[in-house]
């Protein structure tokens, strides 16, 4: 009895960690969709770049002999956010802005092109092999009897929860309280009208891409430290899962993306725990199909009034 309970708790922790990571990436998809109504298919690559920058930053700190963890972590986080945001901003300038106002499919294709470009850009610069980083933060707590199954929560998992929670709270209060946040919401509601009222829509759209990229960078740093491995192709699967989470929660809705990501993470973990890892993806995508059948706008999405 106790063992089953501990096992359940363990799998819940695993699922929540996975879900938190998906959530950070999913926000980027949902924000861009919410504002310009397009999917940014190069978002997974921004996450991948965030991981690489974090690896470089942590290695650089190691070479300088700085091992005090908070300093290393903050430095990795800041440099990764800075570089990824620059990539997010350029992505919008190159692949979206020149095509604004054209058929919706065209920026979609250019985003896929950017995704392929970024993958190969990193591959040529860093090589196609896996790069690895020794675990920076090790250890954790274990619960349960010494001779039976023990549930464990590692410090790294806790760090992922805390950082995700802080990032999400900051983002939510920024969108709902600040002046720029209000401008974001206005652009999302009606871009043309917002423009007429004197909001610099170009700046808001750039900002959206930058915020999305910054959160993807946070995910890149955290997951890079958690798994310790990166290659130029990790963005694809991470992006696919995060995109699913965003659609599940209702694309365009920020709380929806968080909820969708947590549900997805827990569903994957529980399927692997009680059925088989083989059916993990079947269950998560099956869930997506079911939810879209009964709620086409996703869990928290609002039915969109066609603006055209």
């Amino acid at each position: 009895m106790l063992e089953s309970l501990l096992y359940f708790i363990q799998q819940l922790i695993n699922g929540l960690t996975l879900g938190s990571a998906y959530a950070l990436i999913a926000i980027g998809y949902t924000m861009v969709y919410g504002i310009i109504g397009m999917i940014n298919f190069a978002h997974g690559e921004i996450y991948m770049i965030g991981t690489y920058v974090a690896f470089l930053a942590i290695t650089a700190m190691g070479m300088l002999g700085i091992e005090y963890l908070p300093v290393v972590f903050l430095f990795a986080l800041l440099s990764s956010i800075l570089v990824s945001s620059a990539f997010g901003w350029s992505l919008e300038r190159i692949a979206y802005r020149p095509l604004r106002g054209s058929n919706r499919l065209i920026p979609l294709i250019s985003a896929i092109g950017m995704s392929i470009f970024l993958q190969n850009y990193v591959r040529l610069g860093q090589g196609s092999r896996d790069v690895a980083l020794p675990s920076v933060l090790t250890g954790g707590w274990t619960f349960g009897p010494d001779d039976g199954f023990q549930a464990s929560l590692s410090y790294m998992q806790l760090l992922i929860f805390i950082v995700t929670f802080i990032s999400m709270s900051l983002l939510t209060s920024f969108i709902s309280r600040s002046r720029t946040g209000r401008a974001c919401r206005a652009v999302a509601q009606d871009m043309k009208m917002a423009n007429l009222l004197g909001i610099d829509t170009n700046r808001i759209i750039s900002l959206t891409f930058v915020i999305g990229a910054a959160l993807a960078a946070v995910a890149g740093v955290l997951l890079g430290m958690q798994y310790g491995v990166a290659n130029p192709f990790i963005g694809f699967i991470a992006g696919l899962k995060a995109f699913t989470a965003a659609v599940l929660g209702g694309i365009g809705s920020i709380p929806g993306a968080m909820l969708g990501a947590l549900i997805l993470g827990i569903a994957e973990s529980m399927t692997a725990a009680y059925f088989s890892s083989e059916y993990k993806d079947v269950v998560s995508f099956g869930l997506l199909v079911l939810i879209l059948l009964f709620r086409p706008t996703g869990l928290l999405g609002k039915p969109e009034v066609e603006k055209i």
Binding site: Y7, L18, I234
Partner: peptide, 20 residues
């Protein structure tokens, strides 16, 4: 006897299952 997905990064659920 279980399959995992190529490209996966998180195997914590599988590992907990084997431990149990």
């Amino acid at each position: 006897f279980e399959g995992i997905s190529k490209g996966d990064k998180d195997f914590s659920a599988l590992i907990a299952k084997m431990q149990k």
